[in-house]
Design a protein around this nucleic acid. Structure first.
Lengths: 220, 220, 220, 220
DNA sequence: CATGAATGAGATTTCATTCAT
DNA sequence: TATGAATGAAATCTCATTCAT
């Protein structure tokens, strides 16, 4: 009398991948509702329609889930950056398009910055060393990729120069975002002296800083 | 007839401050032993020779303790930076001394970077909004102070320019540190391709970036 | 420059008694606000304008405070009962006046029943054995007194008969009150079947039961 | 192949009930060791061979555990009372058998009176209002049941008369017990004047009072 | 005597993780 | 594989009581 409706177990790899993905999706949705901390495993499991224990069949720890999400996000972002280099024009235009790509990515992925700023103090602290290694390796390879693409488009630059700029770009984003992230309840204070001078306007500052960073390095 | 030993009760404000400090000291010591996460309240209490309840007389949450430590650290750092401006010379020398001051501060305060990178994703999430406000206000005021001192030493710059540079400096430090912080166990990987190109050498990179940042902005 | 206003320390016995009484008064007031449990010592101290430690100079435990209050209440009640016997009439009238005295006492001392029902399970468990002894002795003596007064007014009864009735009266009050004490939030349930039959109407039941108890015993 | 040993996990409802019961049993045992107060949750957990957290899976508060025990006890008692009515004889015999049933119940359940006297001042104060409601409802229903059984056996009485007597019986037990419960250490005092007259001898008094109560009401 | 800082036991709560079924 | 009961560490809170000043 068992219904055919839904397979209760993921037998083959594609089913497993689908289940893994449903966990990631649930985690994303919940994190988006409140980025002030990681949601609980039980809430993720329920959102995904699974039991708590099942989540642990796919991820060793809760942080591993979110490191996977962060991995996804970085991969998406990197792909978009590589795409910029396929139709190369001038350095100036590249910097502009890089900046606007970045900003629109942050707009469409509001979870990215809160998550990225958790990477080092939270996520990597509770994930198996090999997984952390894979994450770091992924980042390094993508940056390498982009560096190579960049060299194809602008052959007169040094190998590694673009990669280094990407690193600094990432650092700037992380740092600036953390400095300007104010809890909602604290926002009123922002209008008082002396905060207006001293808290960065994230997007404006980012735009300016990236221009300085890239043009300063590449125009010489 | 004054006792040299530690008083058993903190009666007046200075004694209370001293006891508060002893909690901070215990917390610092424990965090230094393992910066991968915050130590437990009970371990802090024991290290300070106090009962668990006593710790909660002085701090509402564990995170409040560490935000206080971070506040201390930022204040120390800012004082050192202000001191640089008392004997002004050239901008170039200032940037050099700023960089070396910063790097030696990080060397003598190994807890600073791990703690600072927890500020936004961890500490501020579990501290009363007013305390977070005080922390942010303190930072803003210090930056303002430095900006004013800077203007006295170099009157031809714009008000706020130095403050903005400090913000970006802080952002760079935070971002670069988070990107280069590798768990001890992962260090072997660092020597493999392609990480050598792609993981920043913190101090070298910081030195270069700060030079670019400050000189690019101030020399024009 | 010290003002004469209020003596800070209770030097002689009358001052001590006054301070003790101010603690009792504060405790009464607070208990009246919420009879669902004993108020905290700190709240009593604040209400009395004293420091927490001072309360412990006058009472060894919190429960001792409330046993003292209960003692006061029983003494007041017993005095009222004795007064009834000063103008003796018939047994019937005595029972009636006893009942109405009792009910008006409960009306004017709304703390009495909640407190009396704590005596055995709460108060006596955390008070020095001697103090508990004094409390029990006081009750026994008062009952004895009343018994003697009763014998003067109605000489044809047996010694101890009235005392025994008082005991049963007290037992009935305690038991009936505990059975009919419903938390405010539960009151709606009272109107549903089958509670209406089964939860006693305190005053009506008490009146009837006392009549039965006393007249049954004394009219034979 | 069924294991005889206790299962490690309570999967189905009967196993959950068994685990719940094991917590109740542990709590009973500990309370019996010292009825002057409720044992700590951790001690109950350890006695039951469970983790503290597990206890909280089954009961929301410590008081809920003991209200459940009291519920059990009342149910047992009520069943025994109903059984008396299955072989009805005369009212006189009923009252005698009721009394002896009651007294032997108190002898075999020494925790009952201390616990029952905590119901209103302690247990009901820290248990969810719905649970308290269930407890009260159970009592009311059992009393109703008994009343109906009584009517079958003795049809010439009024509906509710027996229920009312049960209420008063319960009140008498509660009240008398609380008045005669003397801490062990205070027992020596009992032999001194004037306590001997004035402290009820629980069993004797109860027997007499019940006779009066029931016969007075039912014989008319 | 008076004070209130310090203590420490204990109740809850939360929740990541484990593991018997 | 999937489940969810069980675990147990830790945070927080409350609060009666003690005791140095």
């Amino acid at each position: 009398m068992r219904c055919i409706t839904q397979r209760l177990r993921a037998i083959d790899d594609s089913e497993k991948a689908a289940r893994r993905q449903s966990i990631l999706d649930a985690a994303k949705a919940l994190f988006l509702e409140d980025t002030s901390g990681l949601p609980s495993v039980i809430s993720i499991a329920r959102k995904a329609g699974l039991a708590k224990g099942t989540v642990y069949l796919y991820f060793k720890t809760k942080e591993e889930i979110f490191l996977a999400i962060l991995t996804e996000d970085y991969e998406i972002l990197m792909v978009e950056v590589i795409a910029l280099l396929d139709n190369p024009s001038s350095i100036d235009e590249l910097v502009d398009s890089l900046t606007s790509t970045l900003i629109s990515f942050l707009d469409t992925h509001p979870r990215f910055m809160p998550l990225a700023s958790m990477a080092s103090p939270v996520l990597e602290q509770n994930v198996d060393i090999e997984i952390v290694g894979q994450f770091k390796l992924m980042l390094a390879e993508k940056i390498n990729d982009i560096d190579e693409h960049f060299l194809l488009a602008f052959p007169h630059f040094k190998k590694g120069q673009c990669g280094s700029l990407l690193l600094h770009t990432n650092a700037l984003i992380l740092g600036l975002w953390q400095m300007q992230s104010w809890p909602e309840k604290l926002k009123p204070l922002l209008n008082q002296f002396p905060f207006n001078t001293v808290v960065p306007d994230f997007k404006k500052d980012l735009t300016l800083s990236l221009k300085n960073l890239w043009k300063g390095s590449l125009s010489s």
